[in-house]
């Protein structure tokens, strides 16, 4: 298969995915029982009927749905995602600010869970049939069956409420000017949600790595390596890592979609003001432009994750690499 054709086909599939995500979001918003006006107008700031009409006209609530979608798409073609109804700021701006927060959170969680998951998996497999392996397995299965928000609450309770080591909520200190927020502040607020996400992300990659390495250690080539004098750890190092890295990397990039889902929950539990938090706001306020923007961004994000995994294949697997260059 040619690399160019492969990338071309993957890109087409990616665009299809994005179109689908936008359509589904749009249909869901149309079907939603929430009235954006009621969500916007609260008891504290009552507005007159004229004002309501003005807002509705401004938002385009009275236009037929297809026309709204059409307008949105043609604006998008010019790089304009519209204006958030709730934040009253350009959607791109809202997403940019919060996406950076999320990205930081997800990147930390992704790297930590990937690294520790892989290490735990390797150790478990190397010590199969011992207590070390049992302990890691039980830990992973427990974590895997516990919901993210529940683990988040647990961590919140222990570290923020009981121990008081970390702030209870929000991505930045309350009452501090945005410009005065330091990187240290941000990291400090990042620790607990990132911990939650990593803890839950570890188990999948660990269990997967464990099984793959056990398969490798039982393979003919591991037996032969032993016959040639290699010890267990030499076999793991010379043959194991090489053979389990590809599936592990693929899995880790593929897990970005779950990470995204998990981050929505973790951000909500910790009131961490990232994209997940904004998505919940946009959903409950039925902020159509913002929702569409978020759907598009997250779809794109997940797509890039999967694409990266697929493009990494040929780098690591000679069988695919040679097949591509030799045709």
């Amino acid at each position: 298969m040619h690399l160019a054709a492969y990338i071309g086909r993957t890109l087409i599939r990616g665009v299809g995915l994005l179109v689908a995500v936008v359509l589904v979001t749009f249909v869901l918003v149309q079907a939603s029982p929430i009235d954006p006006m009621e969500a916007y107008v609260t008891a504290e700031n009552p507005v007159s009927q004229e004002q309501r009409d003005a807002i509705a006209a401004y938002w385009g609530l009275n236009d037929p749905p297809l026309e709204r979608l059409e307008k949105w798409v043609s604006a998008l073609a010019h790089g304009d995602m519209g204006t958030s109804m709730y934040y009253r700021q350009p959607v791109t701006e809202v997403i940019r600010v919060h996406f950076m927060n999320s990205l930081m959170l997800m990147a930390v969680a992704w790297i930590l869970s990937g690294f520790f998951g892989f290490v735990l998996g390797v150790v478990a497999a190397a010590y199969q049939h011992t207590r070390v392996d049992k302990f890691i397995k039980v830990y992973c299965l427990l974590i895997a069956s516990a919901p993210t928000f529940w683990i988040g609450l647990l961590i919140l309770m222990v570290f923020a409420v009981w121990l008081g080591w970390f702030p209870l909520a929000l991505g930045t200190p309350i009452g501090k000017e945005a410009a005065a927020v330091t990187l240290g502040d941000r990291l400090y607020h990042l620790v607990l949600p990132a911990l939650t996400l990593s803890v839950t992300g570890i188990s999948q990659i660990a269990l997967h790595t464990r099984q793959k390495l056990i398969d490798v250690l039982n393979s003919d080539y591991a037996v032969f390596a032993a016959a040639r004098g290699e010890t267990k750890w030499q076999i793991v190092y010379h043959h194991g890592l090489r053979n389990i890295l590809l599936p592990a990397v693929t899995l880790q990039f593929g897990s970005i979609s779950e990470l995204f889902g998990g981050s929505v929950l973790a951000e909500t539990v910790f009131s961490y003001t990232g994209l997940g938090y904004v998505a919940v706001v946009a959903g409950t306020k039925l902020d159509l432009p913002l929702l569409l923007g978020i759907a598009l961004c997250s779809g794109f994000f997940v797509f890039v994750g999967n694409l990266t995994a697929n493009l990494l294949y040929p780098l690591i697997d000679p069988q695919i690499r040679e097949g591509m260059t030799h045709e």
Partner: peptide
């Protein structure tokens, strides 16, 4: 003591 194994499956496929 050296072994000549029975099939190619005894070679590491990625090395």
């Amino acid at each position: 003591i050296a072994l000549v194994p029975q099939s190619v499956s005894y070679l590491d496929p990625l090395k």
